[in-house]
Design a protein around this nucleic acid. Structure first.
Length: 635
DNA sequence: CTAGGGTTAG
């Protein structure tokens, strides 16, 4: 269920991004945020408890039961306190017991509620009611305890509580939490007559979690009524399943239908904007949140930080982080990963230290950020140190991604043997991506023999991945073994590999423009190609000569130059220069990594056109400014 | 006298 899937830093973009995504009808501010019901704090409840004791009412159980009810509302209440209160009730009613069960259900040990149920209700004359089962099933869901949950289900049926809509909804939710979608569906179908919007939403969630988006869509359309949670579920369902533009389209439709959004909606939409790199869209959602007076919670703030970081505005992320009043572990992790993706290694490490100083315990994701920061900034000593810290001090078992970072850190810095050693010590079998990383290092450092070995191994493991062939051929080219270069190329041609199509994307004038290499489809294609000519002339004047080693085709040198001249990011850059004001920053998102030549050209363009150019490629950000790149050519 | 469903990071 939790199989490792190699994941690039940024997901691939769906084929067709609707250009209408960015156009939004401005809604009136009448759809305000729904206010949360006031809830007493633990401190206030304790004060009330003290009053009850002091005023001599401590033996009056209804009062204590109500107090317990208040405690059960807050998920942060330690259950020891609630339990002592519960024990002070001489003859607990089902009401009191239900509330104690709920306290357990919300605690870190939800299954204790089952113990209470069997010891207190089953063994006494107190009869359970529908509330009892709702809380018990909630506890089983939270614990993902299928066996226990099924047993409770049996009791529900036996005692005839299956017809209560709260109970059957809890059952649907339970089976969904335990990944038994078929069981959820069965309960759903058995309760045709007693369904409410929660029933439908729970079923919707089940399909979404099971990645049955088509079925979820159908259910969503069939629902007799949809509330904000139905919409949020659908939107987050799209986003979690990588259907980002559909998620945004659904959000748009939701707004058109006048449904008032809530924080969960915004967070999912921000995630989609972030993954797509749609800064303007993200900004729009941000201003929407502000105009609707959403409080800047840790969750919303984190989503915003992530959006700005992934859209290239790391300064904006830092500012938000600084100004936030509530931060949780997600906030820190997102900020650390954001700094890492921008190559700000030292800052990421400093933030990590602050994070630890403030008493947080780093999680494995934290270390992916930290090690990623080291790898992108070439911090070898720090990388080794933090890897050790992670495993030895925090006892975190390294995942494939951690190894990936380490192999990259060591390999690129020339410690190829140490990287091999690390791989050999791994407890899980290394992923092809890991070998590919090492292969890259071999190419840089001219380790021909090892590279040859790894390359051939990779061709076996992953014969349809064209990148491996390219890398191996590059290694042979570096060793001037031309026959081998030809052989590998021929092999690649025979294997019918999946060549990942490169694309670049730029947002301009309220639209998303996507380019592929050699693109002539754009409505302003003529002007763009004219601009490419201008760029060519001006960078040549600045002393540029093309580097075509990264082009692997059997074509002549002159043709190669033409190919790289029309790499998708060049087209996007030309278009950007065409449509933006002088001095304005140009932001480009692309799926693959930048080639060396395009990287060089971007640097020169930034200088001769006096533009800051920010490129997000498959693994990191490049900030080109005044002839230099923030990656310091280490990428 | 009590209740349920949706949210973010690699």
């Amino acid at each position: 269920m939790f199989a490792y899937k190699p994941k690039s830093l940024f997901p691939s973009l769906p084929k067709h991004i609707s250009n209408s995504l960015l156009s939004h009808s401005s809604s009136s501010s009448s759809s305000l945020v729904s206010a949360l019901p006031p809830r007493p704090s633990l401190r206030q409840t304790k004060q009330a408890h003290a009053h009850i004791i002091v005023s001599g009412h401590a033996a009056y159980s209804p009062l204590l039961s109500h107090l317990l009810c208040l405690l059960s509302l807050s998920p942060t209440t330690p259950f020891h306190y609630s339990l002592s209160l519960y024990h002070s009730i001489k003859y607990p009613s089902v009401f009191a017991t239900n509330n104690m069960i709920r306290c357990f259900a919300k605690s870190d040990s939800p299954l204790l509620s089952l113990l209470l149920f069997s010891s207190s209700i089953l063994r006494s004359c107190v009869k359970p009611n529908n509330h009892t089962f709702t809380f018990l099933l909630q506890a089983c869901s939270r614990a993902m305890a299928l066996t226990e949950g099924a047993q409770v289900h049996a009791v529900v049926v036996k005692l005839g509580f299956g017809g209560y809509v709260f109970v059957s909804n809890a059952l649907i939710h339970l089976y969904c939490s335990c990944s038994r979608i078929e069981c959820s569906k069965r309960v759903f179908e058995e309760n045709v007559s007693s369904r409410d919007v929660v029933t439908w939403n729970s079923m919707l969630t089940a399909f979404v979690r099971d990645e049955q988006i088509g079925v979820a869509e159908k259910l969503f359309e069939e629902m007799p009524a949809r509330d904000v949670i139905s919409w949020s579920t659908m939107i987050s369902g799209y986003v979690q399943n990588g259907r980002l533009e559909q998620g945004l389209a659904c959000f748009k439709r939701m707004r058109e239908e006048g449904i008032r959004m809530n924080e969960a909606t915004l967070v999912s939409v921000l995630s989609a904007s972030a993954q797509l790199g749609l800064l303007e869209h993200g900004r729009l959602v941000h201003s929407l949140a502000e105009s609707l007076n959403f409080p800047l919670t840790a969750c919303l703030g984190t989503a915003l930080i992530d959006m700005y970081a992934k859209c290239g505005c790391i300064e904006q992320s830092k500012l938000l982080f600084k100004n936030m009043t509530q931060r949780d572990i997600w906030t820190w992790n997102v900020m650390i990963c954001g700094l890492a993706s921008h190559g700000l290694g030292k800052e990421a490490l400093a933030l990590f230290d602050r994070f630890v100083d403030e008493g947080f315990r780093p999680a494995n994701v934290t270390f992916i950020g930290v090690l990623g920061a080291c790898s992108r900034a070439g911090l070898v000593t720090e990388g080794r140190h933090h890897f050790k810290l992670m495993t030895e001090k925090y006892g975190i078992l390294p995942e494939m991604e951690h190894y990936g970072c380490m192999v990259d850190i060591l390999g690129r810095a020339g410690f190829v043997d140490e990287a091999v050693e690390l791989i050999e010590k791994m407890t899980v079998s290394p992923d092809p991506v890991l070998w590919a990383t090492l292969l890259g290092a071999c190419k840089i450092h001219g380790s021909i023999e090892l590279g040859e070995k790894i390359g051939n191994k990779l061709l076996e493991l992953d014969p349809t991945h064209d990148g491996h062939y390219v890398q191996l051929a590059n290694i042979y080219a570096k060793a001037r073994k031309w026959e081998d270069v030809v052989r590998v190329r021929r092999l690649m041609a025979e294997q019918n590999t999946n060549k990942a199509a490169g694309w670049s994307l730029i947002e301009a004038q309220g639209k998303v423009h996507k380019f592929v290499a050699g693109d002539r489809e754009h409505e302003r294609s003529l002007e763009i190609h004219k601009m490419l000519e201008t760029i060519g002339t001006r960078i040549a004047e600045a002393g540029y000569s093309p580097n075509v080693t990264s082009v692997l085709h059997d074509i002549g040198e002159e043709e190669k130059e033409n190919v790289i001249k029309e790499h998708s990011e060049r087209l996007a850059m030309a278009f950007g220069l065409l449509v933006t004001e002088a001095g304005e920053c140009i932001r480009i998102m692309k799926n693959l990594r930048v080639c060396e030549d395009c990287h060089e050209v971007s640097k020169i363009i930034s200088k001769v056109f006096e533009r800051e150019i920010i490129v997000r490629d498959g693994s990191r950000f490049h900030h080109f400014k005044d002839g230099k790149c923030s990656c310091l050519d280490y990428w």
